[in-house]
Design a protein around this nucleic acid. Structure first.
Lengths: 242, 242
DNA sequence: CAGTGGTCTAGACCACGGA
DNA sequence: CCGTGGTCTAGACCACTGC
């Protein structure tokens, strides 16, 4: 465990157990340096992390304060970036939710302009995949996925029913880096109503996403439409300090 | 302008104008140190920023790469944290959108348990505010806001029609720090359909938010329900590197 | 093995807030 | 004025990648 992580997680623990209560002021940076035997920059990095996680607010000249509503922050479960970017499968399993995946369709096509643009492709083919996710025996989302066959070769139905992300990272040895998402509200079409077993007026949370490998290549363009139970996104926004 | 900001914005410019094309590799950290005459840590901080803004991906041992789809990133318009946390008014004005605000109701009440909990209040009163936002002459969101009168004294209808955030920062001299949000899809009730001039099946993007001052005090609990045109949230998620 | 980014230090200096 | 956090440096050492 890195030094700044030790500081971060220790302070989170102290916040959770009430040693540092809501609105209280943390020890100053120099005090924390002494307390943990680390340098000022390391303490600062820990504070950056706490701020990003939404645990504290900082004001230059006066100090660092625990936010008002701090109960049960979990260092590992990082909501600040709006859902961790693992496969859905790994994410659910981490929380003890059972997931089953139904492959509605799976083919190779010439990308539409929209898809080609999102993936920055000039030619070549993409997989076109449509899947339904069943979580704890309840249909909870429909996912439309496009991936260039040149970047992610060798997909099979079996993999789609398991975890694409696992295949990409462990079988292909590629490194997943990040995703850019747009979140909207939308309504289901007829097929989706059937797959998700919902009435026609039921609102869905749509997450459109382009995902990248760590060499910068866009490898996935996907749209996921989530039912209410499943579909909630949490974020933390920091005010721009000028 | 700070040194790391100079580095960050210069690289963003070079990406936008094509000097560093999609998928290309940036100069190494040491090269950039020499190029800008700054230390390694400063370059690293600039790279952290570029990564957070979604411009580059980094891989230890091989380098830093420009992402595939990098067109017109704007350093000031920071989408990475899902909409900057100014008042809606300032946000729209920055983009040349006209905003008008209609105050549907404005009163002081004893907070419901839900509200008191969100604001971590044990006693006292809150303002209860309901407003409709008209953007470019189109009704685009309904906003329900609760604020403790002890924290934000002296609100008036006039302020509500203008900008609460401006009042808080400039008149009260308080410093807004951050906000924690939950995003969902939902449907309008009857009054909302009327205010927003939409049919009954129209899906809304609901953003529930608790906002904090920089001493950690929760000063606002609000729920905003946005129409489709207006309601889109963008985020960038970085993969957890372990 | 050489080259990359990542962490960390000790200490200088600056900017801001409050008494 | 002092105490706070914020930026920055020069350089050490580590961890990973790819040849």
């Amino acid at each position: 465990m890195l030094k700044y992580e030790i500081v971060t997680s220790d302070i989170i623990n102290k916040v959770n157990e009430g040693t540092y209560g809501p609105n209280s002021k943390l020890p100053s940076a120099v005090e924390l340096c002494a307390q943990y035997g680390v340098s000022k920059i390391t303490v600062k990095k820990a504070m950056d992390e706490l701020e990003r996680l939404g645990v504290v607010s900082r004001r230059r000249g006066s100090g660092t304060f625990v936010k008002d509503i701090m109960r049960n922050v979990d260092y590992d479960k990082d909501w600040s970036q709006a859902t961790r970017i693992l496969g859905i499968k790994a994410q659910c399993e981490a929380e003890g939710i059972s997931v089953r995946t139904i492959v509605n369709s799976f083919s190779v096509i010439t990308p539409t302009p929209r898809v080609a643009d999102a993936l920055n492709m000039t030619d070549g083919f993409v997989y076109s995949i449509c899947r339904t996710r069943i979580m704890n025996d309840k249909p909870s989302s429909v996912e439309y996925t496009y991936m260039p066959i040149s970047v992610i070769p060798g997909l099979s139905t079996e993999i789609l029913e398991d975890s694409i992300y696992d295949y990409i990272e462990h079988k292909l040895g590629l490194s997943i880096d990040s995703a850019h998402s747009i979140i909207r509200a939308s309504l289901p079409d007829e097929r989706e109503r059937e797959w998700l077993e919902i009435p026609s007026g039921y609102p869905l949370l749509e997450v459109e996403q382009v995902a990248f490998l760590s060499d910068g290549t866009a490898f996935e363009f996907s749209t996921t439409r989530n039912t209410r139970e499943n579909g909630e996104v949490r974020t933390i926004r920091l005010h721009r300090k000028e």
